[in-house]
Nucleic acid binder design. Sequence first.
DNA 1: CGCATTTGACCGGCGC
DNA 2: GCGCCGGTCAAATGCG
Length: 478
Amino acid sequence: MKLVDHKRAVNEMDFFAGDRSSRQHVKVDDDGGHHRPGLLQDQADDVNTGLNLLTTNTSSEKSSQNLKEKQRVNQLADVRAELERINAENQRLKLTLNQVNNNYYALQMHLVSLMQRQRNLVAESSEANNTEMDRPMEDKTHGGGIVARQFMDLGEATKAEISESSSEDRAPELSGSTGNTIVESMERSEKNSNTNIPEGLPHPPGWLPNKAPKLNTSMDNEQAQQTMAMIRKARVSVRARSEASMISDGCQWRKYGQKIAKGNPCPRAYYRCTMATGCPVRKQVQRCAEDRTILITSYEGNHNHPLPPAAMAMASTTSAAASTLLSGSMPSADGIMNSNIVPKEMILPGSTSLVTLSASAPFPTVTLDLTHNPNQRPLNQLHPISPHWPHNISGLPPHLLGHPNYNQSKLLGTFLSSQGNNELIPGHLDQNRMQVDPVADTAATAAAITADPNFTAALVAAITSIIGHRDNNGNNKT
DNA sequence: CGCATTTGACCGGCGC
DNA sequence: GCGCCGGTCAAATGCG
């Protein structure tokens, strides 16, 4: 019995899944309502026409009219069914198109990074490659400076890529394009790239690799771990004036804790994203001690699920900002903040928002200050617009940064590669030198990070999304 | 009754 | 080792 049912079901499936022309032939029989596959529309019309011609008395006229009406109803039903089918097909095509787009951009990113690497190879071919072997021990001997050193070494990251195979480790990533987050892609990278460690590159115990995801180096797994850890730790804070207890960012949050933090009488609330089970994103909400009308919201982590449009801007901003911040050649947060080259705060062009790279936090933090009005710009404000900012990231389609499913490690990697291109970054950056001044280098990078038009675009998108949820008085609508 | 929030306890990191 | 602090857990409580 079940077998028979199954067979029938399959037949029906085949019937509806048939090609369009045969589907169009499906008709509902006038009297029984039975499906009559194979009956052509024009044939039905022919029947109809014939009946009309034969009508000579009123009863047959009535019946023919009924038939006509029934046929019209049936035609309508057919059209509706066809519409639904086309809609379904349209949805499938949309999904396919999205996947193709993702793959295309992934490939584009890969190509750009390969070209970048090739350029670096050519530029450095004349220079001696004599520092790679010593660096790990050197790192080890710099007591207490491991983390800082990780950032310092970023400047030399591209050099390490010289002797490395190019695409093997990245291939799975590229073909996949299914990763939603940096973390996910890093985890995949970790799985894919932990073999064949060259003998010439020892890994002393306690040695910590560069933050930069070189993606195809022999130290990929360690670096991936480091980067993952940093990305998990990286934060984006948003300061906004709001009377509401929470700014609306389009995501669903569940409160899991509240604390009175030191130095602020206002309690800090802890939320986790509940839009998907296991989503690692957390956020903290706290009022500013100095100005209770200012709400400070900190985001941490990357969503592991697609986001509604309302949440996309913010989420992409947090992850983009975090990855951008982390991918920059920062010697350390302190290195940036202590540098007299790099501005501590910058105003986004075209907006009144303040972007701060935080040094005090134990992890990299980008703060978007939306509380300043145009007439109250703070000190140290700059407009670091750089027309020469690496085009391989600014050339990305704007929606890419906001795409929740885009594998952001590619942005990370490509962006990193761009750090080594001295044609593109004006000023202090010259990564092709063997000796890189880490302070000047990273200082310029930090400045350039914030000057990145795409980064600012993402920030502006986030700001817009927030402002869109606030009324003229700065209060949340929700 | 189920779900969300509250709140005290607990844990790990860090500085002294 | 100890205390402080930030972050998280989980039982209790509240609410629709």
